[in-house]
């Protein structure tokens, strides 16, 4: 199997994959892993893998959260949960995105390196 590598595709696949899989109910962590896998598969170099998986890991949950928080009741729910948890709302969102980024990045690196070792190179 040959992978046609393209960093734009990698970014797009990472973002869309994350959104779709989370939306379908796989859960945010699994979506982050798969999103990272997609980025890792399509990026051309390890440094792009790092950069794009970070970008994708920020963007896809941020897009979903932005849609969600456009609803004022979701904002209220966020404040409420923050009060219950005793933790500021922005910190909760921030930690979530950081974790997604790290998971996504590690998963992307693993995939990228593994693919480099096992799959034939593009001509």
């Amino acid at each position: 199997m040959k992978i046609y590598k393209n960093n734009w595709y990698a970014l797009l696949a990472g973002i869309l994959g994350g959104i779709a899989l989370d939306y379908l109910g796989l859960g945010i962590l699994l979506a982050a892993v798969v999103s990272g896998v997609l980025v890792g598969l399509f990026t051309t170099k390890l440094r792009y893998t790092l950069a794009l998986s970070t970008l994708s890991g920020i963007l896809w949950p941020a897009i979903l959260m932005a849609f969600q928080l456009a609803n004022s009741m979701s904002m209220e729910m966020l404040s409420l949960v923050s009060e219950i948890a005793g933790f500021p709302p922005m910190a909760m969102l921030g930690i979530t995105i950081i974790i997604i980024v790290v998971v996504s990045m590690l998963s992307a690196i693993t995939t990228h390196v593994l693919a480099g070792l096992t799959l034939p190179k593009e001509p």
């Binding site: 989370d22 939306y23 109910g25 859960g27 945010i28 962590l29 949950p61 979903l64 959260m65 849609f67 969600q68 928080l69 979701s74 729910m77 966020l78 949960v81 909760m92 969102l93 930690i95 979530t96 974790i99 997604i100």
Partner: peptide, 11 residues
């Protein structure tokens, strides 16, 4: 993370 999941969490 589970609670903050934008698609299926508390929001």
């Amino acid at each position: 993370i589970y609670l903050m999941d934008p698609a299926s969490g508390v929001l």
